Amino acid sequence: MLPLTSEDRARRNAALGAYKTQRGVLAFAGDWQERLRPAPAYDFRQPAPQGSAWYDRHGWDMTLAKWRQYVDALLDREGA
């Protein structure tokens, strides 16, 4: 866990407050500490599990195919 300075909290609250859907979170954000966990070593070039991605089900602009294009471009750029 990382303790947050007053500047850290202000920056986090400004970021959350910039999105209407997240403003309710601010009521609970008070003096939270940031909790981190090691991220698993995913191979993002591998296909997703069978079926559709969550965002494919909602007709959003983001699709699994588009996400994969973005990931491939980023990994190519980073040399990963």
Rank of each mutant, 00 (worst) to 15 (best):
R35I: 15
R35M: 15
R35G: 07
L36W: 14
L36H: 11
R37I: 15
R37Q: 12
R37E: 10
R37S: 07
R37M: 14
P38A: 13
P38K: 10
P38C: 08
P38H: 07
A39T: 09
A39E: 11
A39K: 11
A39W: 09
A39N: 11
P40H: 06
P40A: 15
A41R: 13
A41K: 12
A41M: 10
A41V: 14
A41W: 08
Y42H: 10
Y42L: 13
Y42N: 04
Y42G: 03
D43F: 02
D43Y: 00
D43Q: 04
D43W: 00
D43M: 00
D43S: 11
D43K: 05
F44Y: 14
F44K: 01
F44M: 07
F44R: 01
R45K: 13
R45E: 15
R45Q: 14
R45I: 05
R45M: 14
R45A: 09
Q46R: 13
Q46K: 13
Q46I: 03
P47V: 02
P47M: 11
P47S: 12
P47F: 12
P47Q: 12
P47C: 11
A48Y: 03
A48T: 02
A48D: 12
P49C: 08
Q50K: 06
Q50S: 06
Q50R: 03
Q50T: 04
Q50M: 04
Q50I: 01
Q50H: 06
G51I: 02
G51E: 05
G51M: 02
G51C: 03
S52P: 05
S52C: 04
S52K: 08
S52I: 02
A53T: 08
A53L: 15
A53W: 12
A53F: 07
W54R: 07
W54M: 04
W54H: 06
W54T: 00
Y55H: 10
Y55Q: 04
Y55E: 03
D56H: 06
D56R: 01
D56V: 07
D56A: 03
D56G: 04
D56F: 06
D56N: 03
R57M: 09
R57D: 12
R57G: 14
H58A: 12
H58T: 14
H58Y: 13
H58G: 07
G59Y: 03
G59V: 01
G59M: 10
G59E: 11
W60C: 00
W60S: 08
W60M: 09
W60Y: 07
W60L: 15
W60R: 09
D61Y: 04
D61T: 14
D61W: 04
M62K: 06
M62S: 00
M62E: 05
T63I: 03
L64H: 10
L64M: 06
A65T: 11
A65C: 00
A65V: 08
A65E: 10
A65L: 05
A65K: 10
